[in-house]
Design a protein around this nucleic acid. Structure first.
Lengths: 136, 136, 136, 136
DNA sequence: GTGGTCTAGACCACG
DNA sequence: GTGGTCTAGACCACC
C-alpha cells in the first residue's frame, strides 16, 4: 500500500523531518507495513517540489534508524521494526523536549487544562484518519 | 530562594534553551518569585561549564520575553508578571513549540498514546501542590 | 529592491542596533517590502567589516520582533506585517527608546529647542513622499 | 544657588547619566550659573542612596567635558560654558540616536503625528518648572 | 550555499 | 563585582 506524504513550508519543522515523521506515522498506523515500497527519492522530490537532497536526507536517516531499507537498484522499502534508541536515551530526550514545550506554554500564562487541550487538538489533527497503534 | 539549573548536552535542545526553560519552570512552580536574583552570568557559566555568552544569550531572551530584568552592574532578577505578547503571537509561539515537541517525540518512535502518557505524567509532576496559573 | 546598510563606529549606538534600525526604517519607508530577501548574514558581515555574529544578532532580534523571517538554508526575508507586542509593552518600549534618545541629546549639550528641531527635520525627511503608517 | 538632583532607578537611563543630565539642564535653564558650587561627591551619594563611585563618575565626565571644575580641597563648581563636541560630531551622534528612536517608534506602527506627540509630552515633563534656554 | 549554536577571550559600561 | 558588545573561528542543521 502507498502513502501520501505531504509537507508544509514556512513553519519551524524542517521538511526532511516532516517526511521522516510521516513515514513513521504510516508505520505506527499500519498504513505502511514491512516490505512496502516507498516512492523513489527523485519521484518524491519532484512531487513535493523540494530539493532531492532533502528527500535523500530523510531516507538516509530512516535507513540509519533501521526504519526503512534501501535495496540497490530496486528501491526503498519498510524494514522489520527495530528499536534504535535505548529506553533511557528515549526518556531523556523526550523529557527535554517536553520541558521545552511546557515551559513555553507556561510563559503564555495558560492553565494546565488549556495546555492539555492544545496538545490534544494538535495530536488529533496529526492523527487524521489513521488509527493509532495499540499494541506497540 | 535559589534555583539549581542543570543542563545536558548531546540532545537536540540547545543549552541556552534549557536554561530558559528551567528559569520559566522555576517561576511557574513558585521556586522563583518576583524580585529574586538569578545567578550571575559568569557564575552560572562557570558552574555549568559553558561559555558565558551562552548564559548571556539565555538571559537576554528571557529579558525580551519580560520574564526577567537585567540591572546593569547589579545582576539579573525575576520581573513582575506582565503580558508582553498579543494573543495572536502567543498562539503562534505555542503552536511552534507544540510542533517541535511532537516532531521530536515521533522521531523517537513513540506512538501517540505513549507521547500523551509522557505528557500527562510531566504535567502531573508540575502540578504537585502548586496552584494552576489560572487561579492567580 | 535591495537595501544599502551602513554603520558607523565610535558612537554609543551598538552596531547590531544600527543594522536593526536601518532594516526597520527601510520597511517603514517602503524600500523593503514583505517577501524581500535581506543580504545573507555572512555577506553583510563581510561588507560591513564586522563579525558575522554581530549581523546574526541583529537579524535574530528582528525575527523576535516579527519584522523578518529566517528560513533555514534559504536566507532571511521581510515578514508580513503583524502585531507582536501588547499595547502596554509597546508603550514601555517607546518610552525606553525616548528616554535613551533624550538623554543622548542632552549629553550633547543641546537645548530642548535644538533637540526638537533636529527631531522635526528627521521626521520630515522620512515623510518625503511616503504615506504615514496610519493611512495604511 | 543650589540644585535639587533627583534620580529614578529601574529604568534604562543610568544613574550617572541622570546626574549629568540634570546638571546640564540646570545650566541651560539658568538654575545653575558659572561659579556655583555643587554638592560634594560623598554628600550627593549619601542623599541619593547610590554608590559614591557613581556620583564620582558623573562628575568626572562633566569635568572632562568642561562643564564643571574641581578645585582641590574646595569642592566642585560650574565652569564657564565651553563647547566640547564639534558641530559635525554633535550632528552625527544626534542623528544616530534619533534614528534609533524613530525606528523603534515606527516598528510600533505609530503615525508620525503620534510619535511627535509622545516626544513632545516627554520633553514637556522633563522641562518641569525650569524655563528653556532661548539664546544658546 | 544558507542560518544556528557554541567557545575563547577581549574590552567597555555601570555601581 | 555586575551585564553588554564584539571578534575570531569552529561545528552543525538545512536545502
Amino acid at each position: 500500500m502507498a502513502i501520501e506524504i505531504q509537507i508544509t513550508t514556512g513553519g519551524t519543522v524542517p521538511i526532511y523531518r516532516q517526511i521522516m515523521d510521516q513515514v513513521r506515522r504510516g508505520i505506527a498506523g499500519r498504513t505502511l507495513e514491512t516490505g512496502d515500497q516507498l516512492p523513489s527519492v527523485r519521484a518524491l522530490a519532484e512531487r513535493l517540489l523540494v530539493n532531492h537532497n532533502t528527500v535523500a536526507k530523510a531516507y538516509n536517516e530512516l535507513v540509519r534508524d533501521g526504519v526503512i531499507e534501501s535495496r540497490h537498484g530496486k528501491g526503498v522499502f519498510i524494514a522489520a521494526n527495530r528499536q534504535v534508541y535505548t529506553k533511557a536515551e528515549q526518556k531523556r530526550r523526550l523529557e527535554q523536549a517536553l520541558d521545552s514545550f511546557i515551559s513555553e506554554a507556561l510563559l503564555l500564562q495558560l492553565s494546565h487544562d488549556e495546555i492539555r487541550e492544545a496538545f490534544d487538538r494538535r495530536l488529533r489533527e496529526l492523527n487524521g484518519g489513521s488509527p493509532q497503534a495499540k499494541d506497540k
